[in-house]
Protein backbone atom coordinates (compact mmCIF):
# COMPACT_ATOMS: atom_id res chain seq x y z
CA UNK A 1 0.00 0.00 0.00
CA UNK A 2 1.41 3.36 -1.00
CA UNK A 3 0.38 6.71 0.29
CA UNK A 4 -1.19 7.80 -2.92
CA UNK A 5 -4.93 7.99 -2.64
CA UNK A 6 -6.43 6.25 -5.64
CA UNK A 7 -10.10 6.62 -4.82
CA UNK A 8 -11.73 9.34 -2.73
CA UNK A 9 -15.42 9.61 -1.88
CA UNK A 10 -16.40 12.96 -0.38
CA UNK A 11 -19.73 13.45 1.34
CA UNK A 12 -21.38 11.12 -1.09
CA UNK A 13 -25.13 10.81 -1.00
CA UNK A 14 -27.15 8.15 -2.77
CA UNK A 15 -30.90 8.05 -2.64
CA UNK A 16 -33.72 7.01 -4.93
CA UNK A 17 -37.45 7.30 -5.08
CA UNK A 18 -39.55 4.21 -4.57
CA UNK A 19 -43.25 4.81 -5.00
CA UNK A 20 -43.94 7.84 -2.84
CA UNK A 21 -40.95 7.43 -0.55
CA UNK A 22 -37.48 8.71 -0.92
CA UNK A 23 -35.06 6.00 0.22
CA UNK A 24 -31.57 7.12 1.23
CA UNK A 25 -28.80 4.55 0.97
CA UNK A 26 -25.88 6.82 1.84
CA UNK A 27 -25.78 10.22 3.39
CA UNK A 28 -22.51 12.11 3.83
CA UNK A 29 -20.38 9.05 3.19
CA UNK A 30 -16.64 9.57 3.18
CA UNK A 31 -14.06 7.04 2.19
CA UNK A 32 -10.54 6.81 0.70
CA UNK A 33 -8.70 3.93 -0.85
CA UNK A 34 -4.95 4.07 -1.25
CA UNK A 35 -3.11 2.57 -4.17
CA UNK A 36 -2.18 -1.04 -3.43
CA UNK A 37 -4.89 -1.46 -0.82
CA UNK A 38 -6.82 -4.70 -0.45
CA UNK A 39 -10.09 -3.63 1.14
CA UNK A 40 -12.88 -5.95 2.24
CA UNK A 41 -16.33 -4.48 2.77
CA UNK A 42 -18.74 -6.47 4.87
CA UNK A 43 -22.28 -5.86 6.00
CA UNK A 44 -25.77 -7.36 6.26
CA UNK A 45 -28.02 -7.31 3.27
CA UNK A 46 -29.60 -3.93 2.77
CA UNK A 47 -26.52 -2.20 4.15
CA UNK A 48 -25.74 -0.72 0.76
CA UNK A 49 -22.51 -2.60 0.03
CA UNK A 50 -23.60 -3.58 -3.46
CA UNK A 51 -24.63 0.00 -4.18
CA UNK A 52 -21.26 1.17 -2.93
CA UNK A 53 -19.47 -1.27 -5.19
CA UNK A 54 -21.58 -0.17 -8.14
CA UNK A 55 -20.64 3.43 -7.46
CA UNK A 56 -16.98 2.56 -7.20
CA UNK A 57 -17.31 0.81 -10.54
CA UNK A 58 -18.95 3.76 -12.23
CA UNK A 59 -22.02 1.65 -12.82
CA UNK A 60 -24.09 3.81 -10.55
CA UNK A 61 -23.79 7.52 -9.86
CA UNK A 62 -24.22 9.34 -6.52
CA UNK A 63 -27.00 11.83 -6.08
CA UNK A 64 -24.79 14.15 -4.08
CA UNK A 65 -21.14 14.68 -3.11
CA UNK A 66 -18.00 14.07 -5.12
CA UNK A 67 -16.19 11.01 -6.33
CA UNK A 68 -12.51 11.37 -7.19
CA UNK A 69 -10.48 8.71 -8.94
CA UNK A 70 -6.82 9.23 -9.60
CA UNK A 71 -7.17 12.99 -9.19
CA UNK A 72 -10.07 13.45 -11.55
CA UNK A 73 -13.78 13.54 -10.92
CA UNK A 74 -15.82 10.56 -11.91
CA UNK A 75 -19.33 11.52 -10.84
CA UNK A 76 -19.61 14.14 -13.58
CA UNK A 77 -18.77 11.85 -16.46
CA UNK A 78 -21.40 10.99 -19.07
CA UNK A 79 -22.44 7.42 -19.66
CA UNK A 80 -20.23 7.09 -22.70
CA UNK A 81 -17.25 8.56 -20.85
CA UNK A 82 -17.89 6.25 -17.92
CA UNK A 83 -17.79 3.21 -20.21
CA UNK A 84 -14.41 4.31 -21.48
CA UNK A 85 -13.22 5.01 -17.95
CA UNK A 86 -14.27 1.58 -16.79
CA UNK A 87 -12.51 -0.09 -19.70
CA UNK A 88 -9.30 1.73 -18.87
CA UNK A 89 -9.32 1.49 -15.10
CA UNK A 90 -11.52 -1.21 -13.63
CA UNK A 91 -11.57 -4.98 -13.64
CA UNK A 92 -14.75 -6.68 -12.37
CA UNK A 93 -15.24 -10.06 -10.75
CA UNK A 94 -18.77 -11.30 -10.10
CA UNK A 95 -20.19 -13.91 -7.81
CA UNK A 96 -21.52 -15.97 -10.70
CA UNK A 97 -18.49 -15.41 -12.98
CA UNK A 98 -20.58 -13.94 -15.85
CA UNK A 99 -18.51 -15.43 -18.61
CA UNK A 100 -19.93 -15.37 -22.14
CA UNK A 101 -21.24 -18.92 -22.60
CA UNK A 102 -20.63 -19.02 -26.33
CA UNK A 103 -16.96 -18.00 -26.15
CA UNK A 104 -14.08 -20.18 -25.05
CA UNK A 105 -11.77 -19.18 -22.18
CA UNK A 106 -9.23 -17.37 -24.33
CA UNK A 107 -11.87 -15.33 -26.11
CA UNK A 108 -13.60 -14.49 -22.87
CA UNK A 109 -10.34 -13.14 -21.58
CA UNK A 110 -9.75 -11.27 -24.84
CA UNK A 111 -13.08 -9.45 -24.60
CA UNK A 112 -11.88 -6.34 -22.71
CA UNK A 113 -9.01 -6.01 -25.19
CA UNK A 114 -11.51 -5.28 -27.96
CA UNK A 115 -11.87 -1.93 -26.26
CA UNK A 116 -8.22 -1.09 -26.84
CA UNK A 117 -6.14 -0.38 -29.92
CA UNK A 118 -3.91 -3.38 -29.49
CA UNK A 119 -3.11 -5.45 -32.55
CA UNK A 120 -4.26 -9.03 -32.88
CA UNK A 121 -0.80 -10.27 -32.00
CA UNK A 122 -0.57 -8.07 -28.96
CA UNK A 123 -3.99 -9.19 -27.79
CA UNK A 124 -3.01 -12.81 -28.14
CA UNK A 125 0.09 -12.17 -26.07
CA UNK A 126 -1.82 -10.46 -23.28
CA UNK A 127 -4.39 -13.23 -23.14
CA UNK A 128 -1.72 -15.89 -22.88
CA UNK A 129 0.00 -14.02 -20.10
CA UNK A 130 -3.21 -13.57 -18.16
CA UNK A 131 -4.23 -17.20 -18.50
CA UNK A 132 -0.81 -18.36 -17.42
CA UNK A 133 -1.02 -16.17 -14.41
CA UNK A 134 -4.21 -17.84 -13.26
CA UNK A 135 -2.82 -21.25 -14.21
CA UNK A 136 -5.26 -22.03 -17.00
CA UNK A 137 -3.07 -21.77 -20.08
CA UNK A 138 -3.92 -25.36 -21.02
CA UNK A 139 -7.66 -24.65 -20.92
CA UNK A 140 -7.57 -21.74 -23.31
CA UNK A 141 -9.87 -23.41 -25.82
CA UNK A 142 -12.38 -24.80 -23.33
CA UNK A 143 -15.91 -23.48 -23.11
CA UNK A 144 -17.28 -22.23 -19.79
CA UNK A 145 -19.68 -25.13 -19.47
CA UNK A 146 -16.72 -27.49 -19.63
CA UNK A 147 -15.10 -25.98 -16.53
CA UNK A 148 -15.71 -26.11 -12.81
CA UNK A 149 -16.83 -23.08 -10.83
CA UNK A 150 -13.37 -22.41 -9.58
CA UNK A 151 -11.89 -22.60 -13.08
CA UNK A 152 -14.54 -20.26 -14.41
CA UNK A 153 -13.80 -17.75 -11.70
CA UNK A 154 -10.12 -17.92 -12.56
CA UNK A 155 -10.93 -17.19 -16.17
CA UNK A 156 -12.96 -14.27 -14.89
CA UNK A 157 -9.96 -13.05 -12.95
CA UNK A 158 -7.79 -13.36 -16.05
CA UNK A 159 -10.38 -11.30 -17.90
CA UNK A 160 -10.36 -8.72 -15.14
CA UNK A 161 -6.60 -8.19 -15.26
CA UNK A 162 -5.89 -8.60 -18.96
CA UNK A 163 -5.95 -4.86 -19.70
CA UNK A 164 -3.98 -4.11 -16.59
CA UNK A 165 -6.53 -2.01 -14.72
CA UNK A 166 -5.66 0.02 -11.66
CA UNK A 167 -8.58 -1.17 -9.59
CA UNK A 168 -10.28 -4.54 -9.21
CA UNK A 169 -13.79 -4.74 -7.83
CA UNK A 170 -15.03 -8.10 -6.59
CA UNK A 171 -18.65 -8.79 -5.70
CA UNK A 172 -18.81 -11.89 -3.48
CA UNK A 173 -16.14 -13.63 -5.56
CA UNK A 174 -16.25 -16.82 -3.51
CA UNK A 175 -19.98 -16.87 -2.84
CA UNK A 176 -20.61 -19.80 -5.18
CA UNK A 177 -17.52 -21.87 -4.39
CA UNK A 178 -16.60 -24.54 -1.89
CA UNK A 179 -14.08 -23.84 0.85
CA UNK A 180 -10.99 -25.15 -0.89
CA UNK A 181 -11.69 -23.52 -4.20
CA UNK A 182 -12.58 -20.30 -2.42
CA UNK A 183 -9.23 -20.27 -0.71
CA UNK A 184 -7.48 -20.78 -4.06
CA UNK A 185 -9.27 -17.81 -5.51
CA UNK A 186 -8.59 -15.60 -2.52
CA UNK A 187 -4.93 -16.56 -2.60
CA UNK A 188 -4.82 -15.52 -6.22
CA UNK A 189 -6.34 -12.18 -5.36
CA UNK A 190 -3.80 -11.74 -2.63
CA UNK A 191 -1.05 -12.54 -5.08
CA UNK A 192 -2.34 -9.96 -7.51
CA UNK A 193 -2.40 -7.40 -4.74
CA UNK A 194 0.93 -8.15 -3.11
CA UNK A 195 3.06 -9.10 -6.09
CA UNK A 196 1.48 -6.96 -8.80
CA UNK A 197 0.29 -4.06 -6.70
CA UNK A 198 -3.33 -4.24 -7.81
CA UNK A 199 -5.73 -2.27 -5.67
CA UNK A 200 -8.64 -4.53 -4.76
CA UNK A 201 -12.02 -3.80 -3.18
CA UNK A 202 -13.95 -6.94 -2.29
CA UNK A 203 -17.52 -7.07 -1.03
CA UNK A 204 -18.17 -10.21 0.96
CA UNK A 205 -20.33 -11.63 3.74
CA UNK A 206 -17.77 -14.32 4.54
CA UNK A 207 -15.47 -13.39 7.45
CA UNK A 208 -12.98 -16.03 6.33
CA UNK A 209 -12.66 -14.31 2.98
CA UNK A 210 -12.22 -10.92 4.65
CA UNK A 211 -9.17 -12.27 6.42
CA UNK A 212 -7.30 -12.32 3.11
CA UNK A 213 -7.71 -8.56 2.80
CA UNK A 214 -5.45 -5.95 4.32
CA UNK A 215 -8.28 -4.15 6.05
CA UNK A 216 -12.01 -4.54 6.49
CA UNK A 217 -14.78 -1.98 6.62
CA UNK A 218 -18.18 -2.79 8.02
CA UNK A 219 -21.18 -1.14 6.46
CA UNK A 220 -24.51 -0.91 8.21
CA UNK A 221 -27.48 1.08 6.98
CA UNK A 222 -25.24 3.15 4.76
CA UNK A 223 -22.67 4.01 7.39
CA UNK A 224 -19.29 2.65 8.24
CA UNK A 225 -19.06 1.24 11.71
CA UNK A 226 -15.81 0.20 13.42
CA UNK A 227 -12.67 -0.42 11.42
CA UNK A 228 -10.60 2.25 9.66
CA UNK A 229 -12.32 4.97 7.77
CA UNK A 230 -9.25 6.59 6.41
CA UNK A 231 -5.83 5.14 6.16
Amino acid sequence: MTDKILYDLKNVEKSFVKGKERITVFDQLNMSIKEGDFLAIMGPSGSGKTTLLNMLGGVDQPTGGEVWFDDSRVDTLSEGELAKWRANNIGFIFQFYNLMPMLNAARNVELPLLLTNLSKKQRKQSVETALELVGLADRAKHMPNEMSGGQQQRVAIARAIVSDPKLMLCDEPTGDLDRNTADEILEMLQLLNQKFGKTIVMVTHDPQAAKYAKRTLHLDKGEFVEGDLAA
Partner: peptide, 11 residues
Protein backbone atom coordinates in the same frame (compact mmCIF):
# COMPACT_ATOMS: atom_id res chain seq x y z
CA UNK B 1 -25.05 -5.90 -18.71
CA UNK B 2 -21.66 -7.55 -18.30
CA UNK B 3 -20.46 -6.21 -21.65
CA UNK B 4 -21.44 -2.70 -20.62
CA UNK B 5 -19.72 -3.17 -17.29
CA UNK B 6 -16.54 -4.19 -19.06
CA UNK B 7 -16.69 -0.89 -20.88
CA UNK B 8 -18.47 -1.59 -24.15
CA UNK B 9 -20.34 1.51 -25.29
CA UNK B 10 -24.10 1.17 -25.52
CA UNK B 11 -23.98 2.33 -29.11
Amino acid sequence: GVMKTLGFQSS
